[in-house]
Design a protein around this nucleic acid. Structure first.
Ligand SMILES: [Mn+2]
Ligand SMILES: [Mn+2]
Ligand SMILES: [Zn+2]
Ligand SMILES: [Zn+2]
Lengths: 163, 163
DNA sequence: TCCTTATTGAAAATAGTTTCCATTTTCATT
DNA sequence: AATGAAAATGGAAACTATTTTCAATAAGGA
């Protein structure tokens, strides 16, 4: 494995070492892919992109690396309901800032949105406070997703009707 | 297969026939299990419960039946992130009324809650309207879930610390 | 009752992810 | 720079929830 020291973001080395982990090429490569694409990549997507430059890196290691990065809070894992996990760089690690997702149930397209976050935050605070009091449940995370039909699929549907 | 006609709710027969489907023992049995347990059962859970009374009914059929009931809107399918789907009777079919879920990330326990629904509805309406205008996305469904630590797991944690 | 067709059950297939384990690599210590 | 203990890797095999296949069976209209 070629040793190209610290071609990745400098904080990665610090971050890994701070947690007692080692700085390795697969970790750098996976993070690089996540940094360069704003899309919601699956483990396999990431594997292909990593593999294009570093053919020796295996799918297993990509899975392991993603798991590590998620546990370290550098990467966020999503489930859009199509049976494969999706990964996105966390906001504070250079990813897109706080947002939620619109998911087309017809074509699987995912749209990031960050409108109405103030209103959302309001609900979340009220709800979190109320629920933690009522159920003594300590809320650490939340998931808000909208499902529906995207513009493209609506158009395609109209086309089909017209014929 | 013993024929015990319509031991299930009378509307099931109508509902199935209305859609061109047949009234069968597996369909009745699966629905019965879902009616009798308010929990969030997996397909396998349901299979075991169905199987206890009707050993000839197979897991495949349980999956198929659940899929059918979900498509008909009689049953709702959830994903709590543990890799297996969960099923719950839809509100208008005799299930619990509209609610969301608190999920303990330590023990997997799921708590139903239906507080703050007014505030939630408010957010949903604002968001749905705004997003459908901005992205021309037609929202048909939403998912709101909270993750965290349940009371029992918090207590267990304290116990562990104390020793 | 008869006949068409939907439904079923068992086995095999699928697909994403995880585990196993022998080999390689990292990096703190010499 | 060399050493060595521990961490990390990659490929194969295992795992697990779910789906597909297909021959046999059952539902229900005629
Ligand atoms: Mn996103
Ligand atoms: Mn519920
Ligand atoms: Zn679409
Ligand atoms: Zn718990």
């Amino acid at each position: 494995m070629p040793r190209r020291w610290m071609a990745g973001p400098p904080w990665l080395y610090e971050r890994l070492h701070g947690c007692g982990y080692r700085y390795t090429l697969p970790r750098e490569a996976v993070l690089q892919v996540l940094t360069q694409t704003p899309e919601h990549l699956s483990a396999e997507d990431i594997y292909f992109l990593v593999h294009a430059r570093y053919p020796q890196i295996g799918l297993t290691t990509v899975y392991r690396t993603l798991d590590l990065l998620v546990r370290m809070g550098i990467v966020v894992k999503f489930d859009f309901g199509d049976g494969r996990a999706r990964f996105e760089l966390a906001a504070h690690s250079g990813g897109k800032s706080h947002h939620h997702h619109l998911i087309c149930t017809l074509c699987g397209r995912v749209i990031d949105y960050s409108d109405f976050l103030e209103k959302e935050k309001e609900l979340l605070q009220t709800t979190q406070k109320g629920l933690s009091e009522k159920y003594n449940f300590e809320i650490t995370d939340h998931l808000i997703q909208f499902y529906g039909k995207c513009q493209q699929c609506k158009n395609a549907e109209k086309q089909a009707e017209r014929r």
